[in-house]
């Protein structure tokens, strides 16, 4: 039986006359990695802050691990871990001191503390840096320290706000492997990102755009349910082709990726490849074929529709 960990209805947060999060409904089940995918300023951080209870919603409500928000969020604190977007541990303390502080604040006993910190230093590959000041760590090491501190008390629900923004691709892979290990141990993870490849690793995602949730579901589902066909054009003079296509009826968007032009075509059009060839008046040497949609296409389509 699936257990719902987070449920929100109409969750809204305004700052002055600006609405950072606009009537968002969410349902997040236990044991998943749930991604918030959205560009800068789309409301990912604000949404997370409301779910951890440190920011009060202007309207709507949420239930997190059975705790109703807005309301007393204290019972949540011991059960959640939160890795902030900006490094928020003490730069003038060493890695070890930071972890000890977290352990004491979460009430681990001395023995537990030693065991757990040793374990975390090993898992997150920080043993060599244990006595280094947190302020002098590299971006990736700092991120691993933040993750270690966030999971130290074995939270049931983990919030990670753009955890890999300063991390190279290889470290990012390792980082995600560690997230799946945590899920295996029973945690639920909410992670925000603006990387498509990262969103694709999530069990489910919600696409956020200017405070609105535009779509949600499993990445594969979202790709399958895309209400557009994707046509890839290969050939010469792609900039010229793009200019010819932009604004034509039935063409939703165009984007150049290296030597190919990716074109989103309205689903209502029966022969998308033919439509593109005709609309751009392409010569025969150019190739033009329907391909499988990816998450970026889903993202572009979801946010474009709302803007129209």
């Amino acid at each position: 039986m699936t257990e719902t960990v987070v449920r929100t209805s109409g969750l809204t947060r305004r700052f002055g006359d600006k609405t950072a999060v606009n009537a968002v409904d969410l349902r997040i089940d236990r044991g998943m990695i749930y991604g918030f995918l959205g560009p800068n300023g789309s409301g990912k951080t604000t949404l997370m802050r409301m779910l951890t209870g440190i920011l009060r919603p202007s309207a709507g409500e949420a239930e997190v691990l059975g705790v109703r928000l807005p309301g007393n969020a204290e019972p949540l604190k011991r059960q959640i871990g939160y890795m902030t977007q900006i490094f928020s541990h003490y730069r003038d303390l060493t890695v070890l001191e930071n972890l000890r502080f977290a352990a004491d604040v979460y009430g681990l006993t001395r023995r537990e503390r030693r065991r757990r910190i040793d374990e975390l230093l090993r898992i997150y590959d920080l043993t060599e840096q244990a006595r280094q000041m947190a302020g002098s760590l590299s971006g990736g090491q700092r991120q691993r320290l933040a993750l270690a501190a966030a999971v130290l008390h074995r939270p049931r629900l983990l919030f990670l706000d753009e955890p890999t923004s300063a991390v190279d691709p290889e470290s990012r892979r390792a980082f995600w492997e560690q997230l799946f290990d945590l899920v295996e141990e029973g945690a639920t993870i909410i992670v925000s990102t603006h990387f498509m490849d990262e969103a694709e690793r999530c069990h489910r995602i919600a696409i956020l755009d200017r405070g609105h949730k535009r779509a949600d579901g499993a990445p594969t589902e979202l790709m399958a349910a895309l209400d557009a066909n994707v046509v890839e054009v290969e050939g010469a003079n792609l900039r010229q082709v793009k200019r010819a296509l932009d604004g034509q009826a039935g063409i939703l968007s165009t984007a150049q990726i290296g030597e190919r032009l990716r074109v989103l075509v309205d689903k209502a059009i029966a022969d998308p490849a033919g439509h593109v060839r005709q609309a751009a008046a392409l010569g025969s040497p150019a190739s033009c074929a329907v391909v499988r949609p990816n998450l970026e296409d889903v993202f572009v389509s979801a946010t474009r529709r709302a803007a129209a």
């Binding site: 604190k77 939160y82 902030t84 900006i86 928020s88 979460y106 009430g107 501190a149």
Partner: peptide, 13 residues
């Protein structure tokens, strides 16, 4: 000011 508050208020302190 040093950005530690957001972490601190998410703990049981």
């Amino acid at each position: 000011e040093r950005g530690n508050m957001e972490m601190l208020i998410n703990t049981p302190v």
